[in-house]
Design a protein around this nucleic acid. Structure first.
Lengths: 303, 303
DNA sequence: GCAATAGTGTCTGTAAGACAATATCCA
DNA sequence: TGGATATTGTCTTACAGACACTATTGC
């Protein structure tokens, strides 16, 4: 493949061609990776008998310099010349959460021209799901101002306009990110245009309070993907500890989908995905429940 | 948002910071867009009574210069500083097929270090589906050596190894691309590692005959995505003309999924996606069939 | 009339949604 | 013992898969 002695129009072999190739000839954009790191944590119990509630959280970092100084951004950074995109994302994940063996998936690449005031920046976004119980607290440490925010994304307004050959569907998604100290929010507009056979989707940040750059729309997109994939894949188990009860698992689904599920049906659907153990929860203030683990041999017939 | 008078640790406002920001400080990768442009064409009828068969085709371009001189590559090119990724992809699509109002979707971003011998190249891949009947022949013109290849991707070998905490599934996909003059092929290895809760997928080109760079794996990935999305979205209609018969529609599904479907069931499933017209096919050598058009108001409850 | 495709009817098994009933721990 | 959760059962409806049957054209 590389033993190429063919000459091009200038009469050069590949070797000669490469030796004079000037990679710095054109101006180039910068490339970053941005990470959406999600986890689900338990909140305080309200009552010794009740179960603790679960909350979906996202890791954000406070920017200490321009641009967007003082605002919160997705962890991430420039891709080095000698590391692949995946490696760059893994490095970021390791640096921010000290976890290196966990689910990670490329989400989407954002490349609008005015995204960053410094220069043209193209950002490859990744989504990672981590189990809060095995996580090093490093990230929740104040040291470099990285903090977990509870997330919610709700449909705020929907508008459908029927046109000649189709319709335009405009949705406003209200994004809320908060913890003890900070309260961030954003409005993300999604416009779906259907005209004849052709469908186009456009996303735009309409309003952003405390969230850097266009990160609000990356977050909104990630949540959408998470909600969608949890229905037909096993990714939710990356948010679970080694052993868990079926109710805990259900709570994770509910907090991500933002809706309640019926217990009996949920158990039927997940039955093949888990393996029963002989262990039980204790001291729960009510009937103990059996602990399960993930079944790695689960076969997915949806994908 | 940009009216930021806050000063950073060096005492600079955002304005000052940006004025001295040097975008050329670090070495940067190059960024390209690569397009997978699919279409489905009719082949010759074998018999005046039989229907014409359909074939899935992909547009490739013959490289006229190093590297990979003489090999076939996906159309694409460097992203300009003043155009978004989508715009770059649209520009490529327009240049290659002269079509500008059609389905286009971002696929995946490929950024391994040794992808291109010239320099570090990160490639954002897009997939586009075009209706061959409305297409300008420009692309199939020999002028710049762009040609349609019929595509097939078949599972060639599958190997599952059970490990302690899961398994390793290795699949070899045989890719064949051909037209009257050229016959290209490649073997793409997909390794899925399941260990406990963590699943990783790795793709690699094992063998490539006449296909430039790592484009074989981009093609294999695109076909996989196409096969998957056709099941629960309306993207197939982008491959159809304005009016079509249900059998033609079914043929498109069959050629993409590479398997036969039952007529009655197919019609039930697509019933909501199409609108009946009063027109019929003629001179078919058998019973005429009703023509349909896409129903833009079809609501997808799978996505 | 016959080859070939167009179009419809129906049976079966499986899965999703809704709801009900029973079981078990522990302060 | 009662509050709370755990676990199982079952009815209904929807839909996917398989197969069979009828209809209509051109030559």
């Amino acid at each position: 493949m590389s033993e190429n002695k063919i000459k091009n129009k200038q009469g050069m072999t590949e070797e000669q061609f490469l030796s004079i190739y000037d990679a710095g000839k054109y101006e180039k954009p910068s490339v970053t990776v941005d990470m959406l790191i999600f986890t689900v944590t338990k909140e305080e119990k309200k009552n010794y008998r009740k179960l603790s509630e679960k909350v979906l959280k996202l890791l954000l970092i406070k920017r200490g310099d321009h641009p967007f100084i003082g605002q919160w951004a997705l962890p991430g950074g420039f891709v080095q010349m000698k590391e692949s995109l995946d490696d760059a994302a893994l490095r970021e994940l390791k640096e921010e959460t000290n976890i290196d063996h966990i689910y990670m998936e490329q989400l989407y690449t954002w490349g609008d021209v005015g995204r960053d005031p410094r220069t043209r920046v193209i950002s490859v976004s990744y989504m990672s799901l981590v189990d809060s119980s095995t996580m090093d607290i490093r990230a929740s440490d104040d040291a470099d101002d990285a903090k977990w925010f509870s997330v919610s994304a709700k449909l705020y307004q929907e508008q459908k306009t029927v046109t000649e050959k189709g319709y335009v569907l405009q949705q406003l998604i209200k994004l809320n990110l908060s913890n003890e100290d900070d309260d961030l929010s954003a409005l993300v507009k999604t416009v779906k245009t259907v005209e004849g056979k052709v469908t186009k989707v456009n996303r735009e940040v309409v309003e952003s309070n405390g969230i850097a750059a266009d990160h609000a729309k990356i977050i909104a997109y990630g949540i959408e993907r998470l909600r969608s994939k949890i229905k037909y894949t096993d990714i939710a188990f990356n948010l679970m500890p080694e052993l868990f009860t079926l109710t805990e698992l259900q709570q994770v689904y509910e907090v991500i989908l933002d809706k309640e599920l019926l217990k009996a049906n949920f158990r039927r659907k997940t039955a093949e995905m888990v393996i029963e153990t002989n262990e039980y929860t204790k001291d729960a203030g009510h009937r103990p429940s059996k602990l399960f683990r993930f079944n790695p041999n689960w076969i997915n017939n949806m994908e």
